[in-house]
Design a protein around this nucleic acid. Sequence first.
DNA 1: GGGAGAGACGTTTTT
DNA 2: CGTCTCTCCC
Length: 642
Amino acid sequence: MAWSDGLIPTTPAYRIASSTNDRIRVVAGPGTGKSFAMKRRVARLLEMSVAPNRILPVTFTRVAAEDLHRELVNMGVTGCDELKGVTLHSLALRMLMRNHVLDATGRVPRPLNEFELEPLICDLANAHGGKKAAKRLKIAYEAAWARLQYQQPGYAPSPADAAFQADLLDWLRFHDSMLIGEVIPLLYQYLHSNPAAAERREYRHILVDEYQDLNRAEQGIVQLLSDSADVCIVGDDDQSIYSFKHAHPDGIREWLNANVGADDLGLDECRRCPTRIVEMANSLIGHNAQRPVPRPLNPMAANGAGEVQIVQYPTIAREVAGVAASVREMIANGTPPGDILVLTQSRAFGTPLYEALVTSGVPTKSYYAESELSHDNAKRAFALLKLFANREDRVALRWLVGVNGNNWHAAGYRRVREHCENNGMSPWEAMTELELGVLRLPYTAAIATSFRDIVQNLSDLEALPDLRAVVDQLFPNGQESTRNIRELAVAILDTITADSREDFVRELSTAISQPEIPTEIEDVRIMSLHKSKGLSAPVTIIAGCVQGLLPRPGPDDLTLAQQAQYLEEQRRLFYVGITRVKAAPADGKPGTLVLTYSQQMPVRDALSVGITPAWQQYDQALLHASQFIRELGPTAPVPIAG
DNA sequence: GGGAGAGACGTTTTT
DNA sequence: CGTCTCTCCC
């Protein structure tokens, strides 16, 4: 199929695909077909024989990356197999692993898993005001980098920040590791200080999706990679929902000033949603006063009006039962489960809903599912596996040796580390001597004991015939706490041929941190509003639309202006949610949106979800409908009691 | 190093 | 209302 098949030359989609301007900005609302236009643009480049490895399609999430790849394959475009959509994060990791880059940065691109942060925080807590303070300081360090504050003239961290950062960097260097939040900044630094680096001219075409969700460092990388590349950025500030990740949505506006002469294209026709929902979405987002340029979505009459229900229940238990009942009814009436998307603002709503659906026999998948590493058993086994593959994995060793102590044996470990630094030893070597009694250090008895167990565990593993046996030993069949990680490990074993421990561990790590995205959707999906971005479904249900949860009040240390911004982001989150509804008139699917909320919930649950109830009656918190329901305007139906 | 008791805090999320 | 964190004490 040719890139221009079915594209009408006067349409914006055609211009996006065909423009030869070396700078293009596309502002595109939800459901307006920006992925479609991007895909056609990539197809055109490939048909013009641009080498696939010189095209860089950057996406915010892996879902989008795989989507692009799949659609190009379906189009049968030559060269698409070699074209990989990547997230900036994975691109950065790949570049940081190149030898000359390693050399220049002096840092090992071995990001810490979430669970491996615990001993790091404990090691730094003492000198920096406790665990909480250390966590805050670590977040501040990553935030400063995400915002590129270090590059801004006049920026200076406070003495406390600077002292913490020095210690943090020492810890990371000593343990041959880095924070996940450093991956992007380190590549930024490398590219920034090496204008002659080949990386800066590696790509001929760069396409960036969801540009409003990138933070300053990420936007900076895109710029540094575009010395000799044509750049096409696509985004929508009305869908900017990642401020907690320091997204810099102003970047999409500033970009036009920095790239004078760029094509400025827009997609406004909402091809996805029913017209009634488009009108509600416009009314809702119109309440955001700080929009730079209001750009209403244009409804597409052929989609039909669609169906919308707003339902209030007396209690949260009734709400859960009610949603489950309507899902069952829809399925009984012929709606495929995969057509139904249930969105909630928190796990606390998602989990009971999931359980109710599963109990009533509805095939359901919760995207709130527990991580493979939520149990200590699984963490321990995984850390052992890392050490089994590489005795010099200092992070894994640090974790294992501290896990049984209430403070991660921070005091003793500090002595071990000092000894290593003074004598040029690795922790493995020092602990071996410690355990043999050759070396004596104060406060290290517990560490020596833990180390002895670790060595024993490892030698037990060494005695096993192959990796399959190692997996059976670490993640025993039938053990609930390691069931998820076992499934992953076994699946990987089935695909790899060589018995290489390093490869196996690397693949398992990747599989854990970057779960597979199911391509065949056969189940009802329950997920957060954030995760729903980029998806669409004929039936979308948003449960728990109550004030205090959606919108949330936001942290109390915000200024009035910041509070207003926070509220606007919450409104954008709801905007993203309701625009997931897909009308498919040809299939007789009108597109259905259901919004539910309840009048009361147990105070205990309210508190644990983050709602501070303004009113309560005995142990029940009294709830109110989200203000966003009201803001949907006159097109929205009158709420009914359920 | 570990236990008892007081006090803070509670969410969403990407890589 | 629970869980985590910190402090104090042995």
